[in-house]
Design a protein around this nucleic acid. Structure first.
Ligand SMILES: [Mn+2]
Ligand SMILES: [Mn+2]
Ligand SMILES: [Mn+2]
Ligand SMILES: [Mn+2]
Lengths: 219, 219
DNA sequence: AACTTTTTTTAGATTTGCCTAAACCTTAAT
DNA sequence: ATTAAGGTTTAGGCAAATCTAAAAAAAGTT
């Protein structure tokens, strides 16, 4: 089976929304895809017909087994291309999403196989998100945001949940990147800000908003 | 201005047909694009409206200045991607056209700029065809097919005009690739076959059909 | 339970790119 | 000058993906 760019974008976005909120609504999907709810309903019917989706009108919907598999394959392609763009072409990670949004739809299986090998089988994309393998499997690392992480511990930055230029600017300012090791000193209850210490540098305090968007894991 | 995949494919194919036969016909374009003449007429009107084409009904058409510029940019993208696929991903050159046919439509300007630099500013694609620069300029090398080339001369293979697996198989059999240096011994008038000598190997005779599809230049 | 609000779906259009079949030009041949 | 043959265009339709506006269902509120 071969799917249109539109179908692929719907499938992938349903998948992503399902990861964060178990109930995906027509409205939220329309919002994510920058389209109108009526268009979403049209596509839901189509995806149901193609047997990628369980859908009962007015009652909600979710990807079935095949839908999920296809979604994971698109995610795989997207993240491999993002890795390529950063690692090989030298893009900053705040610029790659949009381009990968197009590249992910190039359909050759052999292309992705060779790209994966060329990139040396990366496990995560430039934002720290895992790259599913050909079967859709990926390692789930136990991570928490700095806002939730226990104090007095040394942790490693594993991913960022905000991929905007503004976020990148902040991280560069604090000399934080994916893989950076840092110590969490103290959470201030007043405003949720957190004191951290990055490598040999002086300790610094980051805002709650920033802390919530940086994910870390132990060791 | 931003053009759809369909528009880009039409523009590029008009360009290519114009290179080989100065009069492009509705039928030849339809044939090239594997579509129907009526569809071509529809698109011609559209491209005329968008000011990329001079078109008088029943009288023929051709790309104007802007149309040409856009075509050359698509050709640039196509050939850079082909180079990438062969040079970096290790594809054989008979497998890359189809994939580049999709990749060429990814629209980021920065992407192509960085890809070009990553590939070290290649001048020709894996089939020996020149890669236009950002302004659409490229060096035209004076080349002739082996069938037309003068005998008793040592020449260098510059490009192939047939990019099929069968052609690649033949070239591999004779140990010929782009850049291979060979001596043209003799043209047989009976069947147009040509005796050539590739590097230190024994001289061999190739068919007229093959000779016509291998282009060479001097020194 | 009845009303209000929100969410979702349907109905009906629109745009793009394609198609078939019929009509229309152009050119070549009688 | 007709006629025949090709090539090209028009007319009318269809499918995909979108939209707006109206209807229908679900959820929330008194
Ligand atoms: Mn996409
Ligand atoms: Mn990513
Ligand atoms: Mn193409
Ligand atoms: Mn080529």
């Amino acid at each position: 089976m071969n799917y249109s760019v539109s179908e692929e974008n719907y499938i992938k976005n349903i998948y992503h929304l399902q990861q964060q909120t178990e109930t995906v609504t027509t409205n939220s999907l329309a919002n994510e895809l920058r389209t109108k709810p009526a268009s979403v309903t049209d596509m839901l019917k189509k995806l149901q017909t193609k047997n990628l989706l369980e859908y009962k009108r007015y009652r909600g919907f979710k990807l079935n087994e095949s839908g999920n598999k296809i979604a994971l394959n698109i995610v795989r392609r997207h993240r491999l291309w993002e890795f390529f763009l950063v690692d090989k072409l030298g893009f900053e990670w705040d610029k790659v999403h949009e381009i990968a949004e197009e590249l992910e739809h190039v359909s050759s299986v052999e292309l992705i196989k060779r790209l994966d090998s060329f990139l040396n089988f990366p496990q995560t994309d430039p934002h720290g998100d895992p790259i599913p393998d050909t079967n859709g499997k990926f390692a789930v690392i136990k991570q928490v945001s700095i806002a939730e992480a226990a104090a007095k511990k040394t942790v490693v930055v594993s991913s960022v949940s905000d991929q905007s230029p503004g976020m990148l600017e902040m991280l560069n300012h604090y000399h934080i990147g994916i893989g950076t090791s840092l110590k969490i000193n103290k959470h201030f209850t007043f405003d949720g800000s957190v004191e951290i210490k990055v490598s040999q540098k002086a300790a610094c305090v980051i805002s709650e908003q920033l802390a919530k968007n940086i994910f870390v894991h132990h060791e």
